[in-house]
């Protein structure tokens, strides 16, 4: 009996070991592929995104990969496990520093909480650039490559103003969440572009959506209950805009309501083309990452160090330009340059 038991457990350990060996052998194959031409003279760049799943970050990783290839650099990527995962990003920074990267590009999940880990990496001579969202304080990283979110809001604000010329506006704002800088910047930019101040009586409803389509729909439904005559809807991003459109359509109000948004994702631009969204401010995640990779390579090879804020540009995309709304591109241009 006792021998039997021992033998079973022996074979169990053997099975585990064999399974582990198999897995590792499989890894070896995929590891070679991932390393590619990984020689030691190459510049190493790490890209850490908020998550692995959001199309915005997928596009970002794609831009980084292309730029790394063009500049002869080696790219490794990592991401938080969920939106808001700070510890996962801390771990990724530590592991990339251990891997000997020359620079790290990061979209912080938590603008404050990530700062100590970035500080430790910079102390070891690693160049750190924030992409898309700044750290708090902003000088937590060497540089920031991002959309001017205030300007993105301003563009659609001015556009809405031009379209509404002569009509009394009843505005709903579908915002992001309390305490998130991006949401506040776009909102404030929209108001400036429209030429009104916070608390203006034309703003009849403001709700948070977390940038989520179903929450955007619920928020719009509630706003319509409160003020059925809403005719301008500012939305934090395109999913929220599509949620708002669904709610407006159900009430038969889709045709006579102007929806404006920010992002320039492919689904969003298609909605501009289909007339669901009147205009959107398009941003360029691919460019953020590509410029970031270039900056790391220049730093490693020529000792040129970037600093401060670099605007990666924003474009108003609409098929119904209005007089006095400023320069705009049509949905064809938008689709050629969209992400996701």
């Amino acid at each position: 009996m006792s021998i039997f038991r021992t033998r079973t457990t022996l074979s169990r350990s053997a099975a585990t070991a064999a399974a582990a060996a198999l897995l590792v052998a499989g890894l070896a194959a995929c590891g070679e592929g991932a390393q590619g031409s990984g020689g030691d003279g190459e510049v190493k760049v790490g890209l850490i995104t908020k998550t692995d799943t959001n199309p915005f970050f997928v596009k970002m990783a794609q831009g980084a990969k292309q730029a790394a290839k063009a500049n002869g650099a080696e790219l490794s990527t990592a991401a938080g496990k969920f939106d808001g995962d700070n510890e996962g990003q801390v771990t990724a920074i530590e592991n990339m520093v251990a891997a000997g990267v020359d620079g790290i590009l990061i979209t912080p999940n938590d603008s404050k909480a990530i700062v100590p880990a970035i500080k430790a990496a910079r102390a070891k001579g690693v160049l750190v650039i924030a992409l898309d969202s700044p750290t708090e304080p902003r000088d937590g990283t060497d540089a920031l490559f991002a959309t001017d979110n205030f300007k993105a809001g301003e563009l659609i604000g001015a556009y809405a103003k031009a379209r509404m010329k002569g009509k009394q506006a009843r505005i709903a704002t579908l915002d992001l969440a309390p305490g998130v800088a991006v949401g506040k910047l776009r909102h404030d930019g929209f108001l400036k572009g429209y030429g009104i101040k916070a608390g203006d009586k034309s703003i009849v409803c403001s709700q948070d959506t977390q940038g989520d389509q179903s929450k955007g729909q619920a928020a719009m439904e509630n706003c319509l209950q409160k003020a059925p005559d809403i005719n301008v809807v500012y939305t934090i991003n395109e999913p929220a805009a599509l949620g708002a459109y669904t709610a407006l359509k159900a009430k038969g109000r889709a045709k006579d309501t102007l929806i404006v948004s920010v992002d320039g994702g492919c689904t969003g631009v298609k909605s501009v083309k289909a007339g669901k969204i009147a205009a959107t401010s398009q941003q360029y995640p691919l460019k953020m990452a590509a410029d970031g990779v270039k900056a790391v390579v220049e730093h490693a090879e020529d000792d040129k160090k970037v600093s401060g804020y670099h605007d990666t540009g924003v474009t108003l995309v609409t098929d119904h330009p209005a007089a006095g709304s400023g320069a705009a591109k049509d949905s064809k241009y938008g689709l050629d340059n969209c992400w996701g």
Partner: peptide, 13 residues
């Protein structure tokens, strides 16, 4: 997690 990052394998793997 650490070893794969050192090899340059992305976090989704």
């Amino acid at each position: 997690r650490n070893g794969l990052q050192l090899m340059g394998v992305g976090s989704i793997y």
